[in-house]
Design a protein around this nucleic acid. Sequence first.
DNA 1: CCTTTTGGTTATCAAATGATAATGAAAAGA
DNA 2: TCTTTTCATTATCATTTGATAACCAAAAGG
Lengths: 142, 142
Amino acid sequence: MDHSALFQKVVSFASAVHEVTHEMTRGVKDEDITHVQYKILEYMMFSQPVTPSEIADCVNLSLPNTSRELRKLLEKGLCEKGVDEADRRRQMFRLSEEGQALMARVFAQAQRGFEQRIAGLSAAELTGIEQALELLRKRVFE
Amino acid sequence: MDHSALFQKVVSFASAVHEVTHEMTRGVKDEDITHVQYKILEYMMFSQPVTPSEIADCVNLSLPNTSRELRKLLEKGLCEKGVDEADRRRQMFRLSEEGQALMARVFAQAQRGFEQRIAGLSAAELTGIEQALELLRKRVFE
DNA sequence: CCTTTTGGTTATCAAATGATAATGAAAAGA
DNA sequence: TCTTTTCATTATCATTTGATAACCAAAAGG
């Protein structure tokens, strides 16, 4: 079975998501971090604590490069490191206070952009959006 | 009015889209092009012909850098250049045969990944996906 | 005409990212 | 215990990307 038409819609949808994301997170430029460093911090926000291997998987980075970026984040004081006492090979990373504050700033600005986008929508429409998000996430985007 | 919860869902959804996109387009690595070059070709697929300025806008690239990447794509024979006779400052770019073939290969592989993701879904569910895509695109992602 | 603006190109440099090899330390397994 | 595997780090290099200045040609606008 061929679903070319649907596939093309998904592709161009993904492209739109990329562009809007890029626009909404432009506040990152005001902070002293690079784009991949931001991705790492963002990932830490949603799942803490995390190991370098997990980060490498989810952010699509090699382990050595992940390690390098984590070191930079540590130097900037944006995250903290601990050891998993159950398995002392595993290094556990989490956001520091400062890292949380940074992400709060970036998110606050992004959220303002988001609020503008959805301004004027009814409660029913917002529910529709939420359901659409969940549907796509479950069926298409893992 | 504050929609933090919905906003967070959008953020993590966008992140999932990024990841799946990355996974589906890993066929790009087999081709002799970089990621931004691929983005440019992808953009050309959906709107042809395009000027450097338009590309720069949509791919979030400065004009000089866009020009540089377009030159590389020309050298690789993946796109063609023409002049807008109405306004001879404007350069019109479009995919070459070879560029189309390249994109066809990448898309074919990506579509296989997509087909696997949606394998086993009913026609009704597919329609639901399509509607969700359109809703989100219109209300949230421009 | 002459000036200004717009669209594009080239050149150049700094920074970020990708890739790989070598190493170490802890755990798992024989 | 000894070997192998896993997780992580450091170091290094090539490539890609970002940013900026200088420049050119065509159009627009007096």
